[in-house]
Amino acid sequence: MAVAPTTTPGLLTTTIDKAARWAQTNSMFPATFGLACCAIEMMASGTAHYDLARFGMEVFRASPRQADLMIVAGRVSQKMAPVLRTVYDQMPDPKWVISMGACASSGGMFNNYALVQGVDQVVPVDIYVPGCPPGPQSLMHGILTLHDKIMAGEINR
């Protein structure tokens, strides 16, 4: 459910907006989309030391139908790109995408014919997380940045 942003928000709609955003940020289930070494760090961020459950997102959903957030962790090959797009299309709205790591964000050091040079050519990306790979703390920083942007109304879905 996305509350459409109004140009002149009244008292009632702002409150609903805030409530919707609060709900969106506190139960954001990530879709499992680990493609390479970044996936190891993504899995590590769900473990007890980092504990993504603190942000209400401990369940990495294997089914895109139950996921809100797609963490593209790893390099996306040209062959994987249509699969990635299909998984994204299968996710219900509202949905967000985090591009995790150098390869997913820009191709990284693999500037060649086999890899998509930036996953934003395939899906709309909300947050880019630099690093090779980004540690769990960096990923959490990306997630919290996304939460902040949603709460501030900069990203509306």
Binding site: D126, Y128, P130, T145
Partner: peptide, 12 residues
């Protein structure tokens, strides 16, 4: 410093 996520490419 390793926590430097951005919302767009230009900021990176």
């Amino acid at each position: 410093l390793f926590e430097m996520s951005t919302a767009n490419r230009e900021d990176a």
